[in-house]
Nucleic acid binder design. Structure first.
Lengths: 180, 180
DNA sequence: CATGTTTGTAAGTGTGCACTCACAAACAAT
DNA sequence: ATTGTTTGTGAGTGCACACTTACAAACATG
């Protein structure tokens, strides 16, 4: 008995977010997650209820990390106007997704929302983050909407690799976006 | 010999866009596409170079339809200021994605950009649409960027089913978005 | 009508993967 | 020590699916 089940679950979830982020739900065998976590495939199935349960739990971990980073970013805001807090939140988010795992996982999760359990997990994740942004920044609906619209644009820029494209249309889409 | 190969390819591509849109690249067996097109799986493999070739061709067809609709929308603009043309383009896009196939296909394609051929197809598609919007509307970079940012937000709203969510955070994200 | 070409399919083949089960070793409790 | 519980794995099982091949029927052309 090397570790408690709860500690293993955390390790596995980190490996799962990373693995699912790259290839998505259907193209990622749980063998890959197990290998990344350093345990056997069979034990992953005992720790989580099937591949679907694993993915849903990983989604929860993903959005928890995002909410945590955004809240910490708000704490570092220079002022307390909605604009300043939103800006600080944007910076924190840009910094967080530097490794791309959390960003890509969101894209992958959105792609498998035809599975009801995953759709619910995505809604729960955005509920958590959106209510946080709304209440913590004290921003109006339009500002919150804009915050998420440009966040989604960021997902497109990264998945399509637009920061590598020198043509004018790509420069227009990536202009001023923090950090890609 | 009922039909020419070229006519079959068109039929198959329509079926492919629809089928891939729902379940994505990896979860859609080419049997499903073949069945939807009313031909055998083996013939699909003769018409296209593997499942990947089929998906890439479907992506081309998808973005062609989008570009066509946006151009037709611009034609119907009430004035010829960038704002009015962009607005007409937005309406045309909102109308086009009413059946959700074209929207969901884009989301699915973004999720499998770890496959280089698909990443290139996505870039080619957005190049086509973005240059069209930029040149046809005569809009500045910031306006073009905003156009696509809110388009991407629209993808989130649909995949997560936010238009069905009555809570304040979801209302903020969906406010004023055309047609969901 | 004979020969060639294109359209179409039925029936495989091999492989990858989700999930299970029987079993073992580490630890706890009495 | 003995019994029970939790942590952990190796070795399967069965199925879905990408892709191939061999073959047949429709059409064209001389």
């Amino acid at each position: 008995m090397r570790s408690t089940a709860e500690a293993r679950r955390v390790t596995v979830l980190n490996a799962a977010v990373s693995a699912f982020a790259r290839a998505g739900f259907h193209a990622t065998p749980v063998t890959a997650v197990a290998a990344a976590a350093g345990i056997s495939e069979a034990y992953v199935f005992r720790l989580f209820s099937g591949k679907l349960g694993l993915f849903v739990a990983a989604a929860g971990a993903c959005f928890d990390r995002i909410a945590e980073a955004i809240e910490a970013g708000a704490e570092r805001a220079t002022g307390d106007s909605p604009e300043e807090i939103l800006d600080a939140m944007g910076d924190a988010y840009a910094e967080l997704i530097a490794d791309r795992d959390l960003l890509l996982f969101q894209v992958q999760a959105q792609a498998v929302t035809d599975i009801p359990e995953i759709a619910e997990a995505v809604r729960a994740g955005y509920r958590q983050v959106a209510t946080l942004v709304q209440s913590r920044a004290g921003a109006g609906d339009a500002q919150v909407q804009q915050f998420f619209a440009y966040g989604q644009l960021c997902h497109l820029i990264v998945t399509a690799g637009l920061e590598q494209v020198p043509e004018p249309w790509a420069r227009a889409l990536t202009a001023g976006i923090r950090h890609p």
